[in-house]
């Protein structure tokens, strides 16, 4: 028998993404293979300090902005 893990839906940089319920922000950036040293995350318009990624459990419907530096003038 297989156990179904409940999925939640997030908006990540404007795109819909499904992750298992209970995923933390640390889990999400690992899933996305991102280097946390080089980015900043906003969750529902509030900045999440890097030290809080592990403690931040994502909720269904969360809107995340994950940003980094690019070339600019």
């Amino acid at each position: 028998m297989s156990q179904t893990i409940e999925q939640i839906t997030l908006s990540v940089n404007g795109e819909s993404m499904q992750v298992p319920a209970g995923t933390s922000l640390t889990g999400l950036v690992a899933l996305m293979e991102l280097d946390t040293r080089k980015l900043a995350v906003e969750r529902n318009l509030e900045i999440v300090p890097r030290s809080q990624y592990g403690a931040t459990v994502l909720q269904h419907g969360d809107a995340l902005e994950i940003v980094h530096f690019v070339g600019g003038g």
Partner: peptide
């Protein structure tokens, strides 16, 4: 430098830093 969304689809894109 400018601040922009990370590319959700191309995770291995080179980074400015």
């Amino acid at each position: 430098v400018a601040l922009r969304r990370v590319n959700v689809h191309d995770r291995n894109a080179p980074m400015l830093q």
